[in-house]
């Protein structure tokens, strides 16, 4: 077991692992997102109050989930990198940051266009929206900070620290709808109770959420490989791998 974990923690071992595993997640992501899109857009019933504008939920909620989850995973990777000096954790954090920023942007944008017919405004400086905007700036800050140093290790450490500090924002986003009075409605899903929606509405949402998580895993596995090649380009095994095809 430990030998397996040790092998996975090495860039070379992870590379081989990712080559074998990532296709499954790409297939899962494509199938789930494709199916969920068709189901959510054309087959799920319209909401009795919001009509068809409610269909925005099928992209808004998965994007917002990923936006927050990716930041938490980056903070954990930052911790692993800082405490155990495992470079692979930092490579993975580097690989997933742009997707997190993109998902935050999409969550904000889809929320804004949803707000116009539902709330009568596209933006409100309330707790949920403001903390989500802060998350977007945190992502940008982490990405910029990493490249702002001459030495790679200094950039990695600065980015890790900012991620670990910035992760405080995540519980604030999550509980903002309960702690403060906001326009935003409370959580759609919870672990303890049934969703306050009929099955034919929440099932496509669940499929989309699973599809987005598969997409995140697929992108991270594949992009970490790029990051490994970039940073380990002087290593013997990378040379052998590149030389194989010639």
């Amino acid at each position: 077991m430990w030998a397996f974990i040790h092998k996975l923690g090495s860039p070379k071992g992870f590379y081989a692992f990712s080559v074998r595993l990532s296709p499954w997640f790409w297939v899962a992501a494509t199938t789930l997102i494709g199916g969920g899109l068709v189901w959510g857009l054309a087959f799920a019933p319209a909401d009795y109050q919001q009509g068809d504008s409610f269909r925005i939920i099928y992209v808004h909620v998965p994007a917002a989930f990923l936006a927050q989850s990716i930041f938490v995973v980056m903070a954990l990777a930052g911790l692993v990198f800082m405490v155990w000096r495992i470079k692979l954790a930092d490579m993975a954090a580097t690989a997933m940051a742009p997707l997190g920023a993109g998902m935050t942007f999409v969550a904000l944008l889809s929320g804004a266009v949803w707000g116009v017919p539902t709330w009568g405004t596209w933006w409100q400086w309330d707790a949920r929206l403001t903390s989500m905007l802060l998350l977007f700036f945190l992502y940008i800050g982490v990405i910029a900070l990493r490249s702002a140093f001459d030495g790679r290790d200094s950039g990695s450490r600065a980015a890790s620290v900012l991620t670990m500090v910035g992760v405080i924002n995540i519980p604030i986003i999550k509980y903002s709808v309960e702690w403060w009075y906001t326009l935003h409605q409370p959580a759609t899903f919870s672990v303890t109770s049934r969703p306050a929606m009929p099955t034919e509405m929440w099932l496509p949402l669940l499929i989309m959420v699973l599809g987005f998580y598969s997409f995140f895993i697929a992108v991270t596995l594949t992009r970490t490989r790029n990051e490994i090649l970039r940073r380990e380009s002087a290593k013997r095994w990378v040379r052998d791998l590149v030389g194989e095809g010639n």
Binding site: A46, D52, S53, R55, I56, V59, S110, V113
Partner: peptide
């Protein structure tokens, strides 16, 4: 037409 919500639904899906 998305029940009249086309200007909101399609940009959200398009951006995603």
């Amino acid at each position: 037409a998305m029940g009249g919500y086309a200007p909101y639904v399609w940009p959200a899906y398009g951006a995603t």
